[in-house]
Design a protein around this nucleic acid. Structure first.
Length: 504
RNA sequence: GGCGCUAUCGUCUAGGGGUUAGGACGUGAGAUUCUCAAUCUUAAAACCCGGGUUCGAUUCCCGGUAGCGCUACCA
């Protein structure tokens, strides 16, 4: 058997081969990422191949979605995209070669036959595998029937005895008893190849050296190894990467929430963060320490490429952790220069109906940069800085923890006076307001809380003085005046509420 | 059911025949602070179980268990 490996010194050629029956999901993205990292690390070639032989389920829209996802992640490919649907001749030729080698045969069983038999097998005994009925048809007879136009699929004649194994770069030697492998279909009766045939035909034709793909393909691999042998083709290195699971440890699927990479884009995840996070799911550079002796986790793309190696791929499945992703994302957002971040924030804000000048956005960005975990968070964190009219808030929030409505009114009144005269910069305001607090005999905390609520409509907000500076004097004064009125109303109508405010 | 693969804190993981089993996310507490966030300090938290091998196993081997995958004229 020519079981030889491809020359290890050859420049690596790898591929990402999605099936356009859905969007680019997280698992696919990770596979694409590993292929990309490997290609870039080794100076190899990444080929994009669209496995669209299932015409029923494939669509051009899905292809676009997948391409979009890859572009968003910055995963560039060097050749393709190639479409399997346009390479049908290659598959027919390949199937013919395998038939000629005596390793495949025509099968005349209809789908109905097969289903019927499977059903019976399930009810009675066990083996659900194809019973190789047509393999026993003499070659001349079979050829005659094919020549007569009888529809036939082509099946691979799997050895009855022995075993088929391969050396996986991450799992080591994996072996399957041939008796467990059924005579799988290569070419359907309509002349369309099955996955088993088209992958092998293409992987050989495209001269791939490493097959990096999900571990769900381990069980398919012996079927492919058998074909390589029948075709006398050297085996590539198989690299199966563990699967990504949802929080409940089942396969990641729609019910786990976002599972397409574009969904993460829409959530305001930045691609570099997503890529960093994803690269560490099932792979580690192996305990690289930072200057504090802690394991490093944040890596630039260049570092990821430099560090990537097959040895670091783990064997066990990994659970996708949204919290960790959010942390990575926040980490990247915080590290972004203000001008860059504000450009990314602009579309998010305008989509939320918050329009701002570039200048204002540049002023706001540093105030919210470390307060958002996703780009989208900006809309909720910063809305009060842009909006004309504050969202309704509870007037009781204007009352400081240890105080009453009367105090709040005094604070606000004083603030209005101060703000009317002071230079409207954050430093001047802070200084003046702190002095005012001293005059009123209140501490900074209780002093600023009513102002914050009055001005932002909420108890937790970005830094007060910087925010006010961005908003401008007029808006601030107006909002404070409005708050005073609400407080007076509150005090007059519901004295009970005051007590409540005191207690809480 | 059959076959295959896997198994370190809740999660991602480092490590490895002798360690106080390390880090990160998340969680708790504290510091700082105009609130929140960020930051810093700190706490709790793991080697699936059972047999071997060995002076010594979390680490090596076997079995069990569990999880995942495959089991189509889908990919």
């Amino acid at each position: 058997m020519p079981d030889g490996k491809l020359s290890p010194s050859a420049t690596p050629r790898v591929r990402f081969a999605p099936s356009p029956t859905g969007y680019l999901h997280v698992g696919g993205a990770r596979t694409a990422l590993f292929n990309w990292l490997f290609a870039r690390h080794t100076g190899g070639t990444l080929i994009l191949r669209i496995e669209d032989t299932d015409f029923e389920r494939s669509s051009e829209a899905m292809v676009e979605g997948i391409l979009d996802g890859m572009r968003w992640l910055g995963l560039t490919w060097d050749e393709g995209p190639f479409y399997q649907s346009k390479r049908l001749d290659l598959y027919k030729e390949t199937a013919a070669k395998i038939v000629a080698s005596g390793n495949a045969y025509p099968c005349f069983c209809t789908k109905e036959d097969l289903e019927q038999r499977r059903k019976e097998a399930a009810e009675a005994g066990r083996p659900l595998m194809y019973n190789r009925r047509c393999r026993r048809i003499p070659r001349e007879v079979a050829e005659a029937r094919v020549a007569a136009g009888e529809p036939a699929a082509i099946r691979f004649a799997v050895p009855v005895e022995g075993s088929t194994s391969f050396d996986d770069a991450v799992f080591g030697k994996v072996e399957f008893a041939n008796a467990e492998i059924e005579d799988f279909v290569l070419l359907r009766s309509d002349g369309i190849p099955t996955y088993h045939l088209s992958v092998v035909a293409d992987d050989i034709d495209m001269r791939l050296t490493h097959i990096i793909r999900g571990a769900d393909h381990i069980s398919n691999t012996p079927k492919q190894v058998l074909q390589y042998r029948a075709l006398g083709a050297p085996l590539p290195v198989f690299v199966h990467v563990p699967l990504i699971l949802g929080p409940d440890k089942t396969r990641l699927s729609k019910r786990h929430g976002a599972t397409s990479v574009t969904a993460y884009k829409e959530m305001g995840i930045v691609p570099e963060a997503f890529r960093n996070f994803l690269s560490l799911l099932g792979w580690t550079p192996g305990g690289l320490k930072d200057e504090n002796g802690k394991d490093r986790e944040v890596f630039s793309s260049a570092e990821l490429i430099a560090l990537f190696s097959l040895e670091g791929i783990s064997k066990s499945n990994a659970v996708f952790d949204n919290d960790k992703l959010a942390w990575f994302n926040a980490e990247y957002i915080r590290a972004l220069p203000v001008d860059e971040l504000s450009k990314m924030l602009e579309p998010v804000l305008s989509q939320a109906g918050l329009h701002a000048t570039t200048e204002k956005l540049l002023a706001v960005t540093p105030l919210i940069r470390e307060r958002i975990k996703t780009l989208n968070d900006a809309a909720t964190v910063a809305d009060f800085l842009f909006v004309d009219k504050l969202a309704p808030y509870d007037a009781a929030d204007l009352i400081p923890q240890k105080g009453d409505a009367a105090l709040a009114v005094r604070i606000l009144g004083k603030t209005r006076d101060v703000l009317g005269q002071v230079d409207f910069t954050s430093t001047s305001m802070e200084q003046a307001l702190r002095e005012a607090a001293t005059e009123l005999g209140v501490k900074a905390g209780p002093m600023f809380q009513p102002i914050r609520v009055a001005v932002s409509g909420r108890k937790n907000a970005p830094p007060l003085f910087e925010s006010m500076e961005v908003m401008g004097r007029e808006v601030c004064l107006k909002r404070i005046g409005y708050a005073e009125e609400r407080l007076k109303l509150l005090a007059a109508q519901e004295p009970a509420l005051q007590d409540k405010g005191n207690e809480s």
